[in-house]
Design a protein around this nucleic acid. Sequence first.
RNA 1: GCAGCCGUCGCCAAGUGGUUAAGGCCCCGGGUUGUGGUUCCGGUAUUCGCGGGUUCAAAUCCCGUCGGUUGCCCCA
Length: 418
Amino acid sequence: MEKIISPRGTKDILPSESSLWQFIEAKAIETFSLAGFEEIRTPIFEHTQLFSRAVGESSDIVNKEMYTFTDRSDRSITLRPEGTAGVARAFIEHSLDRGSRPQKLWYRGPMFRYERPQTGRYRQFYQIGMEAIGLEAPFIDLEVIKLAYNFLQELGIENLTLAINSIGSAASREAYRQQLLAFLSEYQDDVCDDCKRRMQQNPLRVLDCKVPEDQALYKNAPLIQDSFDEESKQIFMQMKTGLEALGISYTIDSSLVRGLDYYSHCVFEFKTDDKGLGQQSTVLAGGRYDNLISELGGVSSPAVGWALGMERIAYLLEAKKFPETKRVYIISDSAIEASKLAHQLRFDAKVLVEYDFEEAKVAKQMNKALKRNASHGIFYLEDERKSGSYLVKDFQAKAEFNLTSYTELLSFFAGDSV
RNA sequence: GCAGCCGUCGCCAAGUGGUUAAGGCCCCGGGUUGUGGUUCCGGUAUUCGCGGGUUCAAAUCCCGUCGGUUGCCCCA
């Protein structure tokens, strides 16, 4: 029979890895809750229309990367390729603009894009993201970036650089687009095929081209900052001075424009220089999207947010060591008695307890205990039960303790460290 | 979507046209009568990702397909 394997671009997170994922999520819950951000869970699939309108018809995501299908009632359904659109839809649907502003939300979960899988890039991948919706105060951008920064620090990820840029207000960006296109029209026939396509689809991307000959041509291209209106200039300035005041170092990357249509003003990315992730150096990215909510039919609600790729984070954390916890294995000639003791200890001492289901020989149970990475063994055989005692073995210290009551046993396992 | 490389047991692999496809790790069973990952004995691929073709003969050559990987595009 043919073996069934997971579909292309998907992967299982096995127990050897899941503790790391739990660690990441626990840190997210902690960091974001302390800042008053609350979790929102939206559906994994939405009406296709939501994404084509929110993410933008011209984006690659909508053009060639969506997992779209027709359901049994002929509705066009799409597996969400990113988190912001669903959050925005929920914000409008439940009139969250009537709540306190800004609404401070975060989310986690799988996203889907039909792409060629590569290291650090999957068809089903997991993101953690946050959105602050309802106010345009630039201090919110700073708060959101600072939280990203703190979160990454809490996780213990180092060597990330923050790149920021401003793409200005929608009006100033449109003005720039015209200027840029006028400039590019001179070179229309000289540039690479990719750039020809970019001119049609997303002219700002042209400046990011990797072909050296093209780069030489673009040297004299107009700068987006030069087309900024007063408001755009001021917002970007506040951004920069704010980051400096918060002690967050950054670089300005004028080629940073982001792939999604809904962004405006501040955009940013945290990147790693770890080569192991291949071309996927961006670990967290986001920006401001002041018009998305109104474009989707909601009350005008400026917003800012970001998302990070959990696989990429997990990759960077793989080598990290986690603090050891106590792990107890009961060695007994009676699975029933061992089970009773295990359940009691789990609830009374909040310690991880396992035991043997096979009533194997003592030497064998010792081996199993070690194989389970136990830190302690409790000998609990007929002799011990008769005398009401527990022989505790510390596997690391290679020491034995004869405890003569359950109370003594409990106090032995009190506390967190091994 | 395009181009290159790769695919032998759960893992690491030897084998590159010719009798029964090495080896190591892990795993499983057994021996050492209530104490340590040791040791000893034994077991585990009718088959080389899958399908087809060439040949007297294929894991080895050819075609296709699936999957992985690297680069491009793009992106978290």
